[in-house]
Design a protein around this nucleic acid. Structure first.
Length: 717
RNA sequence: GCGCUUGUGGCCAAGUGGAAAGGCAUCGGUCUUCGAAGCCGACGACCGUAGGUUCGAAUCCUACCAAGCGCACCA
């Protein structure tokens, strides 16, 4: 029985028997047993506020009464050393001897740290989900750290965990990469890091296809026009009717924006152009014909302003197409049209995409070969990190079945046609329409997720399904889960999107001396690649901490230490904060391994082993738990006794950071114990043996806790 | 416009309706004694703002402010 339950039972007796509180009333008002914020106040606390109304007394007085009634009963409960009233609270201090007797031997014989009994639930945890043909970077590491830690925690807690990966091995990003490789790459394919090499090809491809590298006004079909007249709309208050001079003709548009006047040159989007992905067409707006639109900076994708109409320089020639007029000098040969060239490149990419969909031919073979380059790199990364996957899903395996499923459920009337496409009307759930099949018959991301979920339910028979995916996908998963529910899958309610925040990078300081935190972008070149990260961590760890041991330790041991400290640094750094917080990655701060870090915990573990080595064999039968009277020893014991409930909460809430906070606090207590309670030089042999056992037990417990986070411990670092 | 998420000391950050952890930075102690990646101490927060619910709110509710993200033919 846990100490909390024991206290609950005791207090129930006190209130019901001694203070004459009605049993039912007590049960409805009984507070949970808390842990005092300040450790010196005790191990557990019982708050008396709730009984103020029932007993018509001040909480402080109730606490005093309860304490008086409790005192005689404590004789039968020697595990509680002391109970004190502190205002409205009763603070329980554990008898450290019974605490130690309960915890230390159980830790040493392995029972305390053994996995919880199986609960018969199969939990699938999908994480990592990297795209092939793209580089693996720091941002991906958070996902792996989270998913793998959760798999370990939930496994320990009693679930049958099936960790799975879901590889993005198809889509336009691959067509772009292979298009560049075939048409524009003329170097040698490197022998190593070929996954990252593909990623660099993809980056170069996106640059070639990015209009803003060729022109400052990236949208096609937009022309310079001069405002001739602005008139009120006859029936709509917030709109105006604007007459425009295009040089060779005059057009009329209905406009909702402001901030321009007669004589200004503005950006006119002609019918056939696309603004925000939508086709511009001649329309009728409240009885007035509108032959296109004039655009804001936001609509032109050149700024954030979406209320005011963007005004062009006064010397912009009327009728000039902006994409050509504002072309960046030297980006293309003279005479080569920006629009035409971009259209040509995109056509080529589409052809690559079509060739890949045919699933045969030289491009398909190239896809298979290059995909393996990425996969080899992923396998290597997971191995280095010690991350586990029991199964790999591939997008290319579920895209066809996804389309079939959509058609099947359209037939069944679950899904509907809309604007030529097929999807789910989720308005009953307050969600936007979920598009599942485009009007050209091709599927989307969600289409594949539907099929994949079916496989998880039907083939794998999962009870719970967890998706570790960043927070920006929240709406997507809400929609997918609802669609699955509409399709009749009971288990849809046991699907859970574990959302987490982005990893950003710190890029220099601003004028005020504050760090600039920016989103990673391959275009800006501030992506921290996995290979760079691994190298930087290894080198820094070696330089700062391991160099003194060269010659004393074997080269292998030093490399192993550098490796596992690096893994601990990255994993702990990614896990030691709430899932939804954004992380500003700063290599210098992370490697500056002081304070609350993974290496601090590994260091604490190494100290326990160092002591054990120096002490040699001890006669455990001499241990006397009553000797552990030092405040640091009591705290350490009290903390260790909470291992089970901490891991349970981490599993329940999918929050590995709970374990981090707990282990760090324990390690702090240990460090204090280490510096204030000599073991080897203890006053008596009994004390030495007892402390040695506490030292060993803490080491085992810390090691298990770190293992749940995917962090290995070493005998020395 | 609608929705989701986040706002806690100079910076980062924990916090399960009950007594504001911790780390970095700054300042001061501490290695002839088990590993100083350590330990001890000092400094510093009315928890975005305004209401509400409650004996009690950083925590729940409402509104507002700020930041990030997302809102059908991208993944």
């Amino acid at each position: 029985m846990s100490y909390q339950t024991q206290i609950q039972d005791l207090m129930r007796e006190v209130f019901v028997v001694d203070l004459a509180v009605d049993a039912e009333t007590y049960d409805s008002a009984a507070p949970g047993i808390e842990v005092p914020k300040k450790k010196e106040m005790g191990d557990f606390a019982f708050a008396c506020f709730k009984f103020a109304k029932v007993l018509r007394k001040a909480p402080n007085a109730i606490a005093a009464d309860a304490l008086a009634a409790l005192q005689p009963r404590l004789k039968d409960h020697p595990q509680f050393a002391e109970v004190a009233a502190a205002g409205p609270y009763l603070n329980f201090k554990m008898n450290q001897a019974s605490l130690a007797a309960d915890v230390v031997p159980a830790v040493l014989d392995g029972s305390f740290l053994a996995p919880r009994s199986r609960n018969g639930q199969k939990m699938m945890i999908e994480y990592s989900q990297p795209n092939t043909h793209k580089a693996f970077h720091v941002g991906h590491m958070r996902n792996v750290a989270l998913g793998d830690a959760l798999a370990r925690i939930c496994d320990w807690q009693g679930y049958e965990v099936v960790p799975v990966n879901y590889i993005g091995d198809e889509g336009t990003h691959i067509a772009k990469c292979l298009w560049f490789y075939k048409n524009h790459f003329d170097g040698e394919v490197p022998e190593v890091n070929r996954g990252e090499f593909l990623g660099s090809l993809y980056t170069q491809a996106t640059l070639m296809l990015d209009p803003t590298t060729l022109t400052t006004y990236p949208l096609a079909g937009i022309y310079a026009a001069q405002v001739v007249r602005i008139e009120m709309h006859p029936s709509r208050e917030d709109q105006t009717v604007v007459a425009l001079d295009l040089g060779d003709r005059e057009v009329q548009v209905v406009c909702g924006g402001t901030g321009f006047s007669v004589g200004d040159r503005v950006a006119f989007a002609a019918p056939g152009s696309r603004i925000g992905g939508r086709l511009v067409q001649p329309t009728d707006k409240g009885g007035v014909a509108s032959e296109g639109m004039i655009c804001s900076a936001r609509e032109l994708t050149i700024g954030d302003d979406h209320t005011r109409i963007h005004v062009l320089p006064t010397d912009t020639p009327l009728g000039a197409e902006l994409i050509e007029h504002f072309r960046i000098e030297g980006a293309l040969p003279e005479g080569q049209g920006v629009g035409a060239e971009l259209a040509r490149r995109n056509r080529e990419v589409s052809e690559v995409l079509k060739a890949l969909e045919a699933k045969e031919g030289p491009l398909y073979d190239l896809w298979q070969e290059t995909k393996q380059w990425s996969m080899d790199e992923f396998y290597e990364i997971y191995k280095w990190l010690d991350a586990r996957f029991d199964h790999y899903f591939f997008e290319s395996d579920v895209s066809e079945s996804g389309k079939q499923a959509v058609l099947e459920y359209l037939e069944k009337g679950v899904l509907v046609r809309s604007e030529g496409a097929i999807g789910a009307d989720l308005s009953d759930f307050g969600l936007p329409f979920a598009l599942l099949l485009k009007s050209d018959g091709t599927g989307l991301y969600a289409t594949k997720d539907i099929s994949l979920a079916q496989i998880k339910f039907e083939t794998f028979g999962v009870d719970k399904s967890v998706y570790v995916v960043d927070h920006s996908q929240s709406l997507h998963f809400q929609q997918v889960f609802r669609v699955l529910e509409m399709m009749g899958y009971e288990k849809a309610k046991d699907c859970f999107h574990l959302a987490y925040g982005l990893v950003k990078v710190v890029e220099g300081k601003n004028e005020a001396g504050q760090s600039n935190v920016v989103k990673m972008s391959s275009r800006k070149g501030n992506v921290f690649l996995f290979s760079q990260l691994r190298q930087a961590l290894r080198d820094e760890t070696f330089e700062r901490y391991l160099k003194p041991f060269v010659g004393e330790w074997s080269d292998e041991e030093i490399e192993e230490a550098a490796r596992w400290v690096s893994v601990a640094t990255i994993r702990y750094g990614m896990l030691n904060t709430d899932n939804l917080n954004e992380i500003a990655f700063d290599l210098d701060a992370w490697i500056n391994n002081t304070g609350n870090t993974g290496s601090y915990l590994m260091y604490a573990y190494a100290r326990t082993r160092s002591i054990k080595r120096k002490l040699g064999e001890q006669d455990g039968s001499l241990a006397d738990w009553a000797l552990l009277t030092h405040e640091a020893e009591k705290r350490l014991l009290s903390g260790m006794s909470k291992f089970h409930e901490v891991v349970a909460r981490a599993a329940e809430d999918f929050k590995p950071n709970v374990v981090c906070t707990y282990l760090y606090s324990l390690a702090k207590d240990y460090s204090r114990f280490f510096s204030e309670c000599p073991i080897k030089q203890a006053e008596s042999e009994a004390l030495r043996v007892t402390r040695a056992q506490l030292n060993d037990a803490f080491g085992l417990l810390l090691g298990k806790g770190l293992a749940l986070l995917g962090i290995r411990t070493l005998e020395r670092i």
